[in-house]
Each structure stands twice: as C-alpha cells, then as structure tokens.
Amino acid sequence: MAAVAVAATLSACTHMPGTGGADGNLPGAVRDGKALLESGQLDAALAELQKAPDDPDSLYYQGRVWAKKAESAPLPTPEPPPNPVPRGWQAPPPPEFKPEEIQAAQLYEKAIAARPASAAPHLALGQLLAPHAAHQYALAEDAARHKKPAAPAPPLPIDAGVDRVIREYQAAMQADPTSPAPVEEIIRFGRRVGRLDAAEAGFKEMVRRKKERETAEPLARYGDFLAEEKKD
C-alpha cells in the first residue's frame, strides 16, 4: 500500500505549476527542459535543466525529473545477512527512501532556499514526503496498539516527519492564496495522520477562499468533517 501511495503522489507532482509563472518568463534551458519533462524525456530534460544549475525554476524542475524517475526505480538491494547468522538476528527494515527520492527532495530544498516564497517546491516537497511520513506514523501507531516497541530502523536521510509535511503545505498555501492544491493536500494528510488541527485549518482556509464564489460546497465539507472526525 505504501508503494502505491508513493507512486500516486509522485505522479501528482507532474501536474503542478512551475515556480516562476508563465513559461515565457523562464530561461531558455529551463523552458526546454520543462517541455522535455512533460513529454517524458527525463534524461534529456535533466541534461537541459542542468545548463542553468542555480536557477530556482531549474532546481524545481530537476526535482520533478528525479521524482518521476523514482516512480519506476526499485528500492535499494538490502544488505545480505551475516554468515553465520547470529541467534535472534532480524533482517533490517527495507529503506524508507529510494535514492531518486532523496535527490528530488534535496533539489526541492535548494529551490526553496533560492526562492522561499515560491509555492510549487513547497507543495512538491510536501507531496514527496507525505507518504513516508504517513508510513512512519502507521508504524508507530501499530507498535502502540500492540504495546510493543517499534522495530529499530536507521535514521532517515531526510526529515520526513508529520510536522515537516504540514509546514511545507502551510508554506505553499501562504505563497499561493489561489491554488486549491495545498489546501486539499493538508486536509487529506491531516486526516490520514490524526492531525485534525491541520485538517481543520485547511477546511477553514478553503471556506475563506471560496466565500466570494457563493458556493456551499466548502461549508458542507467542513460540516461533514466536524461531524465525522471531530464530533463537534
């Protein structure tokens, strides 16, 4: 299930807007690299984007290339068991991240550092990390439910905690007050990991944004959330 969620999230990232507005405002190499990415020519896209290595838009689109590569990449091969196998030895859990996902996350982080007020890399990073944060949350919940310690695992190469994901979605909402994507994502993620405060904040933002449209749909969804989740 975790693998399916990761693939779905990475696929969603391919439909996000860029960081710098219209394509005409992008440097030529970035514009060409974006077009190659959207046509599925990932290696050619990466080569073109790397002609503008420090451009914030280039960094963002390079991250998307690596996120797309991660969809079909296998997990790293686990270390073989020791020989002889010690008594009580347990195989370590499989790696949480693929190398391609780590590369994508690092590029999104660089894009954010270069242009902190850009919504797209915050949103993309949140979407990339959300399945991993949810997986870690599920492991902790399972251990607590069965009153057993969580299986030891090596430290993650990236901060993929629940709070980190929520912060990225919040930053994306603040940077782009018109896009529904980060609002929907924080609602979905908050409900998935038991952070009803974050989900409720997303619903409130949805209602605030859609007041001018005079539609009852956001209020109806918020009411359902309060009735089903918060029992208010």
Rank of each mutant, 00 (worst) to 15 (best):
P80L: 02
T9F: 08
P157W: 04
A22F: 12
A45M: 09
L75C: 05
P180F: 09
K34G: 04
R191Y: 00
E101Y: 00
R188F: 03
A2W: 02
N83A: 14
L128G: 04
K211G: 10
I102R: 05
S179P: 14
K231R: 12
A220I: 14
K147N: 12
A45Q: 11
P155W: 13
N25W: 11
I187H: 01
L123S: 08
P92Y: 01
E228D: 15
M16T: 13
L156R: 12
P78N: 08
R221H: 01
G190Q: 07
L226W: 04
A105I: 04
K231D: 07
P76W: 09
L196R: 10
A7Y: 03
H132S: 14
R221E: 06
G194P: 00
W66Q: 07
E48K: 15
E168A: 09
A198L: 06
P149H: 03
A153N: 14
A160P: 05
V4R: 09
N25Y: 11
E96V: 14
S72E: 09
V4K: 05
A181K: 12
E184L: 13
Y61D: 00
E212L: 10
A91R: 15
Y169E: 07
Q50V: 07
L196P: 05
E185C: 03
A160H: 05
D163H: 13
V193H: 00
A198M: 08
G20Q: 14
L75F: 11
V207D: 10
K34V: 11
A105D: 06
D54F: 09
L156E: 12
